[in-house]
Amino acid sequence: MTAGMVGPPWTRTRISAEQYDSWSEEQCAGIEIVEGLVVVSPSASKRRNRLARILANALDAAAGADWNGDTDFDVRLRDAPLTNRRPDVILYRAETIDLTPTRPEHVLLVVEMVSPGAEATAPAAKADQYAEAGIPFYWRVEQAATGVPIVYTCVLDPATKAYRDDGTFTGTVNVTAPFPVTVFLEDV
Rank of each mutant, 00 (worst) to 15 (best):
S24I: 10
C28S: 15
C28I: 13
A29E: 15
I31P: 00
E32C: 05
V34L: 06
V38C: 07
V38M: 02
V39H: 07
S41D: 10
S43V: 15
N49S: 11
L51E: 02
L51M: 05
A52W: 06
A56V: 04
A56Q: 06
N57T: 14
L59F: 05
L59N: 05
A61K: 14
A63G: 08
G64V: 02
G64T: 02
D66Q: 14
T71A: 13
T71G: 11
D74Q: 14
D79C: 10
A80C: 12
T83W: 04
R86S: 09
R86L: 09
D88C: 05
V89C: 02
V89D: 06
L91M: 08
Y92L: 04
R93W: 05
A94C: 09
E95Y: 11
I97T: 14
D98E: 15
T100Y: 14
P101E: 08
R103D: 11
R103M: 10
P104C: 06
E105G: 11
V107W: 07
L108K: 07
V111C: 03
V111F: 00
P116L: 02
P116N: 05
G117H: 03
G117E: 00
A118D: 13
T121Q: 04
A122Y: 09
P123A: 03
K126G: 05
Q129D: 15
A131L: 00
A133D: 06
A133P: 08
I135G: 00
F137Y: 11
F137W: 06
W139A: 03
R140P: 07
R140I: 06
R140V: 06
V141F: 01
E142C: 10
Q143I: 12
Q143K: 15
Q143T: 14
Q143F: 13
A145P: 08
A145E: 15
G147A: 04
G147F: 07
G147N: 08
P149S: 07
Y152P: 15
Y152S: 13
T153P: 03
C154M: 13
L156C: 04
L156N: 00
